[in-house]
Design a protein around this nucleic acid. Sequence first.
DNA 1: ATTCGCAACGAAAACGTTTTCGTGTTGAAA
DNA 2: TTTCAACACGAAAACGTTTTCGTTGCGAAT
Lengths: 350, 350
Amino acid sequence: MKRKVTLKQIAKELDVSISTVSKALRNSAEISEDTKLKVQAFAKLYNYRPNNIALSLKNRKTRTLGVIIPEIVHHFFSKVIKGIEVVANKRGYNVIVGLSNESFDKEVLNMEMLANGSIDGFILSISKETLQNQDYHHFTETINQGMPIVMFDRVVNDIDCDKVVVDDYSGSINAVSHLINKGCKNIAIITTKDYVSVGKLRTQGYIQALEDNGIQAKPSLILKVDDRQVSDDNLEVLETIIGEMFKENPQIDGVFAVNELYALTAMKVARNMGITIPEQLQVIGFTDGVLSKHANPSLTAVSQHADLIGQTAANLLIDKLEIEIDDEVDESYQTTTISTELIERESTKS
Amino acid sequence: MKRKVTLKQIAKELDVSISTVSKALRNSAEISEDTKLKVQAFAKLYNYRPNNIALSLKNRKTRTLGVIIPEIVHHFFSKVIKGIEVVANKRGYNVIVGLSNESFDKEVLNMEMLANGSIDGFILSISKETLQNQDYHHFTETINQGMPIVMFDRVVNDIDCDKVVVDDYSGSINAVSHLINKGCKNIAIITTKDYVSVGKLRTQGYIQALEDNGIQAKPSLILKVDDRQVSDDNLEVLETIIGEMFKENPQIDGVFAVNELYALTAMKVARNMGITIPEQLQVIGFTDGVLSKHANPSLTAVSQHADLIGQTAANLLIDKLEIEIDDEVDESYQTTTISTELIERESTKS
DNA sequence: ATTCGCAACGAAAACGTTTTCGTGTTGAAA
DNA sequence: TTTCAACACGAAAACGTTTTCGTTGCGAAT
């Protein structure tokens, strides 16, 4: 077993000083050609690579980004990570991933674990519990210590940092308008409780789109699901309440769901009730994931361009990191909005 | 902005030496109670946390695992990562993720980027290109440098390291036997080219199950898809060749697909040809992802317990890291097999 | 009065780099 | 012969820890 070779070992072996080796490898003009060649050849032979940790300590930069997300087994988040990874890699950064699992404590713990020198900055999406608690001290403290944060998707206005968001509002307006254009007269929305910012925005977009078309939103057609009761493994509750809404409001001819799962569940319930899609009922879901594409019928969806969100966030963070010379924190923050795109499939009329 | 406080600053502030501060914080008996209390109070006030990088350099351990996977936007891999994360977190480790994107070069690059001190060991699944090239020098070199590797799912026998694999062979036997038990007489398999080890094993399991039941495998019913031509965005080719197989072999009454996508595509093609599922055709897919559960009809699938794979791999790696005292490499390697489970759903008869 | 032991603390090395600043040697100019 | 610049290299500090090994001062034992 050959351990990794260090400058010190090379120096000893070639009978020169550590400084000489370091300079020779960096092609410094201070060192004679002879010595350079000798050192470089030796380093190549023993496959010398500078130790990242030592470099990090010296430069007080790790060239590593910390990413904290609520969940990784999720098409949207994994796509964001991929976007981050691609950009980070291209720009010479590594990515450490931490999962909050939608828990406030784990979010705080994860951030503390990484903030002590392991990373240069954070990219994160806030956990549901944190959003409910409205306790953001860990974000402000991190920022106060000079560590930049970029938030994406689930953001909060109270915090001064760069943000990358989806235009949930206008995306929803587009989707609902599309349903109206395709002839829907009674459109229901399946959404989440308001503390999830994106759910709230999407609901507002839904209402606005109706109003724009001279339709009054009816409370009976707004289904706010408590997503603490509904998980991927427990869809019966969801099916039941959707079924009830359909029964009590047989005039429903369009459904706008704020995520894939709600949309697919609505289609399933409708199918079981003998309602045909898209003839009798048209459905659109927010979030374009694998389910939408491969559902039967396939689901018309509002694509969020998750990979672009990740890329944008990573570029924002790295830009900020590399601009900050001499510990001068750049105090200007920007919010980038990534526009959505309606992908038409079989669940709406063509 | 308060920068992170260091031992040196505390020492200066309290007019003691750095060593005294360090010992006081670690509750050393060498230090008087008075000094300890003074130092600890000050540290708490200024929220002192030891710098991870400095610790890593000193201890020559980073308490960080490197994970290299071919793709993250993939239910199986993201679930494995989640399993790794949970265990790593519980045992005080961080996780750096690198994506090979199925490319040999990116796999090598990513590993080199991390192997220079950033991490203590690797957990990885080999990229398709590497499997084709059969060039494994980067693995052996890493191991030779004393950095342990744990491979999962896509492994290769040539390399001496711990491995976590799925029992692809017996899982496939189970699945195909199930089809036979449910009355299938002519079972087709949709699989990948043989260089992907798991595809090969699953195909072998299929053949074995047929033989066990006195059935001779027919080449015309073995469809080997070139997955370089088929992506999530380009399923037409796949649909065409599956359709051709169905037309040329109308006696087919069962399909075993080595992944979800192939299974769903087979169901789609069948549906378009007016074949009913599960009455006329029963389908089972390997890999239990979101698609299987939410497909219509939902897909009977062979679950791989991806999270368990991740947990097992992480535990194996950390065990090895923490056993290796005094640079003594533990040369005993084990291969853990995670058994599969058949999840019955609507695509097979009950 | 001398020695001993102990309590409490500090100096310094080490981890692996980079970089600044010094230092010795050489050859040429004065 | 002296002076001086240029050249080639080394020593040391710094990044933030931990830990080993001194080094004090002091009360007690001899």
